[in-house]
């Protein structure tokens, strides 16, 4: 198994976990984390793609990952702020429709 294939599989597993978490978890923080994990799985896949040819490293996916990380960070930051604001406003850590 090549390195690329291995990391691709890991990325697939990670994204599965992330989506599972997004669906099953109600706590907002965990959901935000799930999205983060999903993002990381995609980045991992991109990095793996960059090495699909063993003799050559494709720079384009790297650039994409770098940009993606920046965006992911800001998105996560905003999500966290929003979750905190939501908590302080309502005292809830989950969305209203997820009430047991």
């Amino acid at each position: 198994m090549t390195q690329a294939a291995f990391f691709s599989l890991v990325a697939g597993a990670l994204s599965g976990i992330a989506i599972y978490g997004l669906i099953t978890q109600r706590h907002l923080l965990r959901r935000i984390l799930a999205v983060n994990v999903l993002g990381n799985s995609v980045f991992l896949l991109l990095v793996a793609l960059a090495r699909r040819d063993p003799d050559y490293v494709d720079p384009v996916p790297h650039a994409m990952v770098l940009t993606g990380i920046v965006i992911a960070v800001s998105a996560t930051a905003f999500a966290l702020v929003l979750a905190r604001r939501y908590y302080s406003e309502t005292g809830l850590t989950h969305l209203p429709e997820d009430e047991e």
Partner: peptide, 11 residues
Amino acid sequence: SRLVAVAMSGV
């Protein structure tokens, strides 16, 4: 009301 949950959307 069934559709509104994020979990449902995920599925």
